[in-house]
Design a protein around this nucleic acid. Structure first.
Length: 363
DNA sequence: GCGAAAAGTATGAT
DNA sequence: TCAAGCATACTTTTCGC
C-alpha cells in the first residue's frame, strides 16, 4: 500500500500562543525574543507573527535589529514552559489520529509527523479529510491554527506543510512530486541549509530539478557518501525514513550568555552551576541518568567548541556533573587564550532509572 | 590494522 | 554590524585488542 504521511506545523507558534493569551495583540506585530541579558535589547528573535514578518522581523535576527525594523512592535520574552504545556495537548490530538502510537513522531515543540497509511487505507482523499479534521480540532480546543502537509513520505509531507502558510493544507500525491519539487531552490529541501545550498551553488546546481539529475558521483565527492546520496534521492522526492515514536530527546542541555566575556574560572563557574542545576532538574523530570557530560563553549569570536567526558557508568547526581564540568572548564581555560561569550552544559547517554535509584541518589 | 567508542564539529529550524 | 538556545547528524580521533 502507498504510504500516507501527514505533517502538522503550528503557525508562528510562540507568537500565536501569546496572541491567544492576549487578544489585544492581534493585528499588531508581535516578536517573541530570547534575551541574553547583555544590555536592554541583547538577544535574538525566536518567533514573530506574520504582521511582524512584513517588516522583515524573522527568527534568528538580533532583537536590536528587530526594534530598528519596527520600533512599534510588541516585544515579549519567551515562555518556553508554557508553550510546552500547550504543545503537549496539541500533540495528544495529533497522536490520536496516527495509525498507532508508534506512528506518531514529534520533531519539535510545534511540529509532528503522523503516519496514517492504515487509517486511511492508502486513500489521499481520506487523508485530506483527516487533515481538515485535525485543523478543526486544534482550532476548537486550543484556538490556534496550523498548516498541514500530506504526502507519500516525511520529506514531501514536511515540505507540503510549508506550501500554504498560515492555516494551509496541501496534499502532494506521488504523481505531483516532480512538478512540486523541480523548480524549487535546493535550500527549500528539508535538510538543506545555507551551507549545503552554498556548496551546491558553487557546483552550479540551483534547482531541485538540477540536483535530481546531477551526477551522484560528484555529489558524493562534494558531500560524502551519506549526504551525497541522500541529496540525490531527496531531490527526486524519495524518502524511506519511517515515522517513529521518540521517547523524548537523547540529550538534555542548557546554554546561556555570560554577563560579559570572560576567561575567569571563578566568574564562569557560578553560571555553569546554575545551568547544571537546570539540567539536573530536567533529568529528574525525565527520570534518567546520564553517562556523557559535555561542556559547550562559544568564544567571543562566536566559534563553538565542546569538551566532553564519558563516565564509567550512568549516574544521576548533581555533584558528579558539577565536578566534571569544573574539570572540563579548567582544562579548556588552561589550553585556550580566547575569552568566552556563552557557556553551556549537555548530558547524553541517557538511561531510565528506577524511582528507587533516583531516591537513593538524592537522600 | 580493525571496529567500536569517545570526542568534536557542522548543520538546521524556530 | 549584531549575533539565542536548543537538538541531531555527521566526521574525526582515540581506544582496546
Amino acid at each position: 500500500m502507498l504510504r500516507i504521511v501527514v505533517h502538522v506545523d503550528m503557525d508562528y507558534f510562540y507568537a500565536a500562543v501569546e496572541e491567544r493569551e492576549d487578544p489585544s495583540l492581534r493585528g499588531r506585530p508581535v516578536v517573541v525574543c530570547m534575551y541574553s541579558g547583555r544590555g536592554e535589547h541583547g538577544g535574538s528573535v525566536s518567533t514573530s507573527n506574520y504582521t511582524a514578518r512584513k517588516y522583515g522581523i524573522k527568527s534568528g535576527i538580533p532583537c536590536s535589529r528587530a526594534i530598528k525594523l519596527n520600533p512599534d512592535a510588541v516585544f515579549l520574552p519567551v515562555r518556553k514552559e508554557f508553550y510546552t504545556e500547550v504543545s503537549d495537548s496539541i500533540m495528544e490530538i495529533l497522536r490520536s489520529h496516527a495509525d498507532s502510537d508508534e506512528s506518531f513522531e514529534q520533531i519539535s515543540i510545534d511540529e509532528a509527523f503522523i503516519e496514517v497509511t492504515e487509517n486511511c487505507n492508502g486513500d489521499f482523499e481520506c487523508a485530506r479529510k483527516m487533515g481538515e479534521d485535525i485543523k478543526q480540532t486544534i482550532l476548537e480546543k486550543e484556538q490556534l491554527t496550523c498548516s498541514v502537509g500530506i504526502g507519500p513520505n516525511k520529506l514531501i509531507a514536511k515540505m507540503a506543510s510549508s506550501e500554504n502558510k498560515p492555516d494551509g493544507l496541501t496534499v502532494i500525491s506521488k504523481n505531483d512530486i516532480s512538478s512540486f519539487l523541480k523548480d524549487r531552490s535546493p535550500s527549500q529541501l528539508w535538510g538543506v541549509g545555507d551551507v549545503t545550498a552554498g556548496s551546491l551553488e558553487q557546483m552550479d546546481i540551483n534547482t531541485v530539478g538540477q540536483l535530481a539529475s546531477s551526477d551522484i558521483v560528484s555529489l558524493i565527492d562534494a558531500f560524502g557518501k551519506k549526504k551525497g546520496s541522500w541529496l540525490k534521492k531527496a531531490a527526486q522526492g524519495i524518502d524511506d525514513s519511517p515515522v517513529r515514536q521518540r521517547e523524548g530527546t537523547e540529550q538534555i542541555g542548557r546554554i546561556a550568555t555570560l554577563p560579559e566575556n570572560s576567561s575567569d574560572h571563578d566568574l564562569i563557574m557560578p553560571v555553569l552551576d546554575n545551568l547544571a542545576d537546570d539540567v539536573i532538574r530536567k533529568t529528574i523530570e525525565r527520570g534518567v541518568s546520564f553517562r556523557q557530560v559535555t561542556l559547550i563553549v562559544i568564544t567571543s569570536d562566536f566559534k563553538t567548541q565542546t569538551r566532553n567526558h564519558t563516565l564509567q557508568r550512568a549516574v544521576a547526581g548533581k555533584e558528579i556533573l558539577r565536578t566534571n564540568l569544573d574539570k572540563l572548564l579548567t582544562n579548556f581555560l588552561g589550553e585556550n587564550k580566547s575569552t568566552i561569550r556563552r557557556i553551556g552544559v549537555r548530558v547524553a547517554g541517557l538511561q531510565e532509572v528506577s524511582s528507587q535509584t533516583t531516591l537513593a541518589s538524592y537522600f
